[in-house]
Each structure stands twice: as structure tokens, then as C-alpha cells.
Computed example of a mutant assay.
Amino acid sequence: MTKIRVTKQFSFEMSHALMNYDGLCRNIHGHSYKLQVTVIGEPMLQSGNPKDGMVIDFSILKKVIKDKLIEPLDHSLMINNLSAHEKLVELGELYDRHHIVNFQPTSENLVIYIAQKLKDILPEHLDLCSVRLYETSNSFAEWFASDNT
């Protein structure tokens, strides 16, 4: 059987701060992220089935990723748990969209975080092939399954 790669693109707004960074990004700031998720699988071969010929219906892939990954990240703040996050927890009653993570929220670490999340939510018949995260229009980080086996 032939394996086919299918890619879906998403966008979300998120802010972060890089603890102990030696530049402006040590301050809370935001990005308009673009996320490309590529999965790999075999097209369904069931004549008469409405999904015949598809690896996955794009609308199903969109719903799964949007509901479980994009929605929680969109318009949120992500900071390292080693920073002064106690203040953020206090503000949590007013601002509920925040993620306190155990890593520096760089593009590189975010793409690893996203890949790990995706592996847990993708339908079983699909494998995650790659994740590309644009932090700006001309800067991105990539994760490839083939590099991480």
C-alpha cells in the first residue's frame, strides 16, 4: 500500500516570555503563530464509502487539532515554571488562559511540546510525520518523526 502525507495549517495568537534571555524576548510579548501539521497514512480503499480515497478527511483533522490543541493555546500566555509564575497564578482568577510549563517556551521547545500533544490526539490509523511552527513570517522551527526515532 502507498503511504501519503497530508498537511493541515492552523493559526493562533499566543504570548510568552523567555526567562533569563539576554534580549527583548525576556519581556512578555506575543506572536501570530502559523502551525503546519503533516500526518502520514494509507488512503481508505472502500468503494462507496464517503471517505474513499482519503487518508483522513481534512475537516476531521481540523476539528481534532483545533479542539484539543489550538483552542487551549489561542490567546494564552506561556511561561516557564522556573519564572515568577506565582504572580500569574494569582492573576489566574482574572486571566484564565495561561500555561505554566517545565521548559523555556522557545519556538524549538514549542514544536516539541506540540508534537508530543499531537501524538496523543491523532486518530490511531495516522502517524505524525512533521510539525512546522512559524513564530514570524520568516522564522520557524520544525520537528520530523524521522529525526526522532
Rank of each mutant, 00 (worst) to 15 (best):
T2C: 00
K3P: 00
K3E: 05
K3S: 00
I4D: 01
T7N: 06
T7F: 03
T7L: 06
T7G: 06
Q9H: 05
F10A: 03
E13K: 02
M14L: 04
M14F: 00
H16G: 05
A17T: 06
A17K: 11
L18S: 08
L18Q: 08
M19K: 14
D22R: 14
D22V: 08
G23K: 10
L24S: 12
C25M: 07
R26Q: 14
N27A: 06
I28V: 15
I28K: 10
I28E: 13
H31W: 08
S32N: 15
L35S: 00
Q36R: 08
V37N: 08
V39Y: 02
I40R: 14
P43Q: 07
P43T: 03
Q46Y: 00
Q46H: 05
Q46N: 11
S47C: 05
G48T: 04
K51H: 10
K51T: 04
D52Q: 09
G53V: 02
I56V: 14
I56L: 09
D57P: 01
F58M: 13
S59Q: 12
L61S: 05
L61Q: 07
K62W: 13
K63D: 12
V64K: 07
V64Q: 08
I65A: 02
I65Q: 02
K66F: 07
K68W: 01
K68M: 04
L69I: 15
L73A: 03
D74I: 04
D74L: 03
H75M: 08
H75N: 13
S76R: 08
S76Y: 07
S76N: 10
S76I: 09
L77G: 02
M78V: 14
I79P: 09
I79C: 13
N80H: 15
N81R: 12
N81F: 07
S83Y: 09
H85C: 13
E86A: 11
K87A: 10
K87G: 06
L88R: 11
L88G: 11
V89C: 06
V89K: 12
L91G: 09
G92H: 06
L94R: 09
L94D: 11
L94W: 10
D96S: 13
R97N: 15
H98K: 11
H99D: 08
V101G: 02
N102E: 14
F103P: 06
F103H: 05
T106K: 08
T106L: 12
T106N: 12
N109W: 01
L110V: 01
V111T: 12
V111M: 07
V111C: 08
V111P: 01
I112S: 09
Y113Q: 05
A115T: 03
L118N: 04
K119G: 04
K119A: 11
I121S: 01
I121A: 00
L122F: 01
L122N: 03
E124M: 05
H125T: 04
L126F: 06
C129W: 08
C129P: 00
S130L: 04
L133P: 07
S137R: 12
S139I: 13
S139D: 11
S139C: 11
F140S: 15
F140L: 15
F140D: 13
F140E: 14
A141F: 03
E142Y: 02
F144D: 11
A145G: 06
N148S: 03
T149D: 11
T149L: 11
T149F: 05
